[in-house]
Amino acid sequence: MIWLAAAYILPAFAIAVQSMQTNQQLAQTSVVLGCFYLFGLWAIAQGMAQRSGGSAYPKIALLISLVALVGLYYFSQVVDDLHVRMLILNIAMALLVLLGVAAVYRGQKSADLFERILRGSYLCFVAYSLIRPLVIAIAIEQGPSVELTQSPMWLLMLAANLLLSLWFIGVLLVVTFREVLLTLKKERDLDSLTHLLNRRAFFEQAPVRIQRSRNGLWALLICDVDHFKQINDTLGHAAGDEVLRSVAKVLLRNTRHTDLVVRLGGEEFVVLLNCDSLQCACVAAERMREQFAEVRLAMGQKLTASFGVVVIESAQQLQSAINQADALLYLAKKTGRNKVVSAPVADEPAGQLVSA
C-alpha cells in the first residue's frame, strides 16, 4: 500500500507544480519533476505487482528512468524542446507502468469480484498510459504555440488523469477496506498458537457447512492429547505449545479443504469430517492416532491421543453430537487412552471400538 500511496502523491505534486508554470519554467524544472513522475508511475506498477507476489523489475525501471532523465536534461538545458520532452517523459512513464503487468497477470487469479475490478482498472490505466504518447505526437504535428498549461491538450489530459485516478483510488479503497475486514475476521476466528479455527468460528461455520453439503455424511471427531498436563509440568509450557502445534499439523495433513479442523480449547481438538460412513471416520481417526506416535517428545517419549467419533446427519444435531463425542472421548481415556471410540449408528455394529 505504501507503493500505491506514493503512486498518487508524487505525480500529483508534479502536476500541481507544473500547472502554475510557464513553458520557460517547465524547462528549468523538467528533470526534477520528471523524477517525481517516473518514480510515481513505477510505484503503481510495483504496488500492483507486490499484491500478486511479484516485482516490477526495479533494475529495468532504473535504466528506463536514467535514459529518460538524460533526454529531459538535454532537451531542456541544451536544446529547449517542450514537445520532445513530453514525448520522452510519457513514453518512459508508459514503459514503467507496463513493468507490473506480467506480475499481475501471472499471479494467482482471484475469485473476488473487487480484486478482479482492481486488476481491470490497472489494465485500463496501462492502456491510457500507452495511448497518451500517441496523443502528444499528434499535438506535436499540430504545433500549438500557447502556454502548455493553458492548452486544450493539457486540460484534456488533466481531466483524464483525474477521472482515472478517482476511479482507481475508489476501487483500491474498497479492496483495502475489505481486506482489513477479512484480516480482522481471520484474527478473530483463528487460534493464535496453532492457526486452526477456534471455538467461535467452529460454531459459526460448522452448521453452514453441514447444511450446504450434498456429499455423504458428516462425522465429528474429538481428539484430546493424553497426559498433556504432565507434559507441561515435566517438559515446560514451551514444549507443550510445540506438542499442540504438532497435533494441528497431523490433523491438517489428514483432512481436506471441505473439512473443519478446530482447537476447541486447551489440548482438545475437533475435526468435522465429510465422510461416507462411521467406519470411514474411524479409519481417518486411527490414521491420525498412529501419526501422533511418530511425534517424539523429550527422552524419546511418544505423543498419544484419544478420540471420540460420532456421525452427524443434520446441523441441529451438532451440540448433541459434541456431547456424545465428549462422552466417548472420556470412555477412551477411562479404558486406557491412546484409542478411538465410536458411537453406533443404524446399519453399523453397535459399540464399535477401535483401539491401539
Rank of each mutant, 00 (worst) to 15 (best):
A139D: 15
L303A: 14
C280F: 03
S314V: 01
L196F: 11
L113K: 11
Q319N: 15
T29D: 00
E268D: 06
V341E: 05
L217R: 11
Q319Y: 13
V31I: 03
M20D: 13
R116S: 12
Q21I: 01
V311Y: 03
L252E: 10
V345N: 04
A137I: 04
G120M: 08
E187R: 10
R106A: 07
Q108S: 04
L164M: 11
F39T: 15
P207E: 12
S30G: 00
P58D: 06
V146Q: 15
R116A: 08
Q18H: 09
I60E: 03
N90D: 10
W154M: 03
I117N: 07
L318A: 13
A346H: 08
L182M: 06
L130D: 10
A6Q: 05
V126M: 07
L272T: 07
K59R: 09
K333D: 08
P207V: 03
D80F: 06
S277H: 10
W218D: 04
S30F: 00
L318P: 13
I210S: 02
Y37W: 13
L190R: 15
I131D: 05
S76F: 01
S306W: 09
Y8G: 12
S320E: 15
F292A: 11
Q108C: 00
N198D: 12
G300N: 14
A356H: 02
A343L: 10
L221R: 04
Q319F: 13
L331G: 03
L26D: 00
Q46K: 03
V270Q: 04
M1H: 07
V31D: 01
V171S: 06
N274K: 11
Q291W: 04
A94D: 10
Q21K: 12
T176W: 03
A16Y: 14
R287T: 14
P349I: 14
A56P: 04
L353D: 08
F39A: 13
A137T: 06
V67A: 10
V97F: 02
V31P: 00
S121A: 15
M93Y: 01
V17H: 14
S145D: 13
Y128G: 14
Q150I: 06
A94V: 09
L272Q: 03
L118I: 02
W167S: 08
K59D: 01
L196Y: 11
V126C: 10
L99H: 06
A327R: 05
I2K: 12
Q150C: 08
A293I: 06
L318S: 11
L72D: 02
R85V: 02
L272C: 06
C282N: 07
I169M: 12
